Computed example of a mutant assay.
Amino acid sequence: MLAPAANSLTGTRGITRGVTDIRRAGDRFRTESEWLDSHHSFSFGRYYDPANVGFGLLLVHNDEVVAPGTGFDTHPHQDLEIVTWVLRGALVHQDSEGHNGIVYPGLAQRMSAGSGIQHSEKNDAGEPVRYIQMWVRPDELDLDPSYQQAEVGNSLATGELVPIASGLAKHEGSSAIRINQQDAGMSVARLQPGKAIQLPTAPYVHLFVALGAVSLEGAGDLGTADAARVVAADGQRVTAGPDGAEVLVWEMHSR
């Protein structure tokens, strides 16, 4: 994986409190090669925009498609909580701590880079893999590197907003996997047509429409790969369109 742009820890700028900032899919930064098509919600790699270097505690939110038989060779990370959510296909993970895993739709994965880890991400299948990779800073630096994955498909069948990767106290015992950041948590909902959820009440909420389309209360319609950054979120309703939707929601209580 490419490194985030320099200064990616400076937080969010140019967003007024209480305002929902809509970011359309086509406006994202893009890295494209023969084997990779990656869209970046925030400054990343060679793309740098000082007004778009993160939101809340969320540093990286990449929407990536990797061609069959290709992927990211072994590369290092340090002091990051890395959450990967696969939407189509399968991604093979291997790291220097001896962890191995195959990540596919309905399986949550977290790698804590801690004091330092090296890993690779490969698409060994015969079809492209599409996944969302998200990075947040941990509460503490120089933690022991660790890895966790868990099946969540049955929970998502309820249509509720399901805690997937969280360090929030309210998600203790209910989140599929834990991250080392007590002020952040990522939840997912798979919504049938016309069904709705409420966004969490939090200082910072990042809503990403991974599949389908939704209507966000007070902000209008969002399509596939559109996002909303909500400051001082207070439970706005998210309603799925006629074909349903899958949404990823980060709730963050600091920056």
Rank of each mutant, 00 (worst) to 15 (best):
D139V: 03
M134P: 03
P4S: 02
I15W: 10
N62G: 09
H40A: 13
F29K: 05
E172I: 06
R178Q: 14
V230L: 14
E81W: 06
T12L: 05
R88S: 15
F42E: 03
I117L: 09
Q198E: 12
P105T: 10
G11S: 08
V209Q: 10
D95R: 07
P68N: 11
Q181R: 14
D183S: 12
I132N: 03
A210N: 07
F44V: 02
E64T: 12
G18Q: 07
S254W: 10
D37R: 02
V230N: 01
A233L: 06
L87M: 12
L59N: 04
A150R: 08
Y47P: 00
A3F: 00
I164N: 01
D142S: 12
S187G: 11
Q94Y: 00
K122H: 13
M111Q: 12
S120N: 11
Q133R: 03
H61Y: 14
L58P: 03
A233T: 08
A228M: 11
R137H: 05
L222N: 10
H39A: 13
R137W: 00
I197V: 14
R13V: 09
K170Y: 06
R13L: 13
H171I: 09
A219N: 02
K170W: 04
D142C: 05
R88M: 09
V53E: 00
E246Q: 10
G212V: 06
F42G: 05
H61T: 05
L161Q: 07
V231S: 14
L222G: 06
R190D: 11
V247D: 07
V162Y: 03
G69N: 12
Q182K: 09
H119G: 05
H75F: 03
D73N: 09
S43C: 09
I177G: 07
T70I: 00
F42A: 09
T84H: 04
T158Y: 02
A25K: 05
R190V: 13
A157F: 00
T239S: 12
H206T: 10
N62Y: 07
N180P: 01
G235P: 07
V238L: 12
D21L: 11
D21M: 05
D37K: 09
V238H: 11
R178C: 06
R24A: 11
D21I: 01
V231M: 15
V209R: 04
G18R: 01
A113V: 02
G26W: 06
A176L: 09
F72E: 04
S175Y: 03
L80P: 00
H39M: 03
V129Y: 08
D95S: 07
Q109P: 02
T158L: 13
M111A: 07
